[in-house]
Simulated assay, not measured.
Amino acid sequence: MIKLRKMRDDEFSAYRQYSMLAYGSDLAENYGYTLNEAADIADNKLTECFPDGIETSDHEMYCIEFGVESAAQLVGYLWYKVAEPDKTAFIYDFYVFEGFRGCGIGTQVFSKLESRLKARGVEFLNLRVASNNERAKKLYQKLAFNVTGYNMTKKID
Rank of each mutant, 00 (worst) to 15 (best):
T34H: 05
N126E: 10
A71I: 08
L139T: 04
F97W: 03
E98Q: 10
Q141I: 00
F97C: 04
S57E: 03
A22L: 08
R120D: 07
Y18H: 11
I64E: 03
F90R: 11
P85H: 05
S115G: 13
K87V: 14
I156C: 12
A119H: 07
E29A: 00
N132R: 06
K154V: 05
D86R: 05
I54W: 00
S131M: 08
C103A: 11
V68F: 11
G32A: 05
N146H: 14
Y15C: 12
P85L: 01
I54M: 07
G53W: 07
V82N: 05
K142D: 02
K138N: 08
L74D: 09
A144N: 14
Y77K: 02
I64G: 12
R120V: 05
G121V: 07
F97I: 10
T88W: 04
R16T: 13
Y23A: 00
G102T: 06
T88K: 09
A130V: 09
E37D: 04
M7C: 04
F124N: 12
K6G: 09
M20I: 12
F145L: 02
V82A: 12
A71E: 12
V129G: 10
M152V: 06
M7S: 02
K155W: 03
Y150Q: 10
V129Y: 02
I64V: 13
T148E: 13
T34A: 10
K154E: 10
Y23N: 04
Y80P: 15
Q17S: 13
V96Q: 06
C63E: 06
G99M: 11
A83C: 14
E37W: 01
L127H: 00
E98Y: 07
A89M: 15
G99E: 15
Y33I: 08
N133E: 08
Y95R: 12
S70M: 10
G99D: 14
Y15R: 08
N30V: 02
T56A: 08
E84V: 07
F90D: 15
R5V: 00
G104L: 04
K137D: 02
M152K: 06
R135S: 06
N132K: 14
E55L: 06
Y95F: 14
K142V: 01
M7Y: 01
S19M: 08
E123C: 11
Y92F: 14
L139G: 07
R8T: 09
E55W: 03
Y77E: 12
L35S: 01
F145Y: 14
N30C: 07
L143T: 01
I91C: 11
V82H: 06
D40K: 12
D10Q: 13
L117Y: 05
K137F: 00
P85G: 01
K154Y: 13
T34V: 05
E84A: 15
T56K: 13
I54K: 09
L139E: 04
Q73T: 14
N133G: 03
P51K: 00
M152N: 00
A130K: 06
G67S: 12
V147F: 06
L27E: 05
I156L: 15
K45H: 15
L46D: 08
P85I: 02
S131I: 05
D10C: 12
M20R: 15
T153I: 14
E29P: 01
D10R: 15
A28I: 07
A136M: 02
D40S: 13
A119T: 05
T148L: 09
L113M: 01
G67N: 01
E29V: 00
S25Y: 03
S111C: 07
W79R: 11
N36V: 11
R16V: 05
Y80Q: 15
A28C: 09
